[in-house]
Amino acid sequence: MRKMLVTDYEKCTGCRLCELVCSVKHEGVSNPARSRINVTKWETKGIMVPMVCSQCEDAPCMAVCPTNARIRESELGTVTVNYDRCIGCKTCVVACPFGAINFDPIDHKVISCDLCEGDPQCARFCETGAIRYAEASDANKMRQREAAEKLYESLQKLDGAGVS
């Protein structure tokens, strides 16, 4: 069975090691701005959320790409970019509900998770288990989707209750 990155924001301490190892692995420098995973902070709530490409089955980024440059790579099932076709319009960045497509400010290109050829460094280095590389079971896929939706909901409740 295919594997996927499963994130658990309740376990994320915000150490950002994932961002660093990601940029080192892909760009050879430790520069979180060039990472394909982003730990996002909901400022007023202090919640840390690792955001990374879910390699969605019905991927919005693939659907919107005006040059067919986002393609499904068959071996790992990742969504990758054909840079010969990419025009850098960033419509994919806009369409991703997870904000999981980044724009490399140095190379001026869109970047997103490629699962490090099957050995994702973020999961390997995450000490709390907030990022795991696990089987792409339906349960895990659901879990990932629910996490995203719960995040929206819990925040909405907090706001509604006037906690902010």
Partner: peptide, 24 residues
Amino acid sequence: KIKSMIEQRITPLNLRHHRVGRYI
């Protein structure tokens, strides 16, 4: 929900000064 999203916009932390970064 929208109001809260724009007002307390999810923003990445300022990463440049992160301690771990210097050692990796």
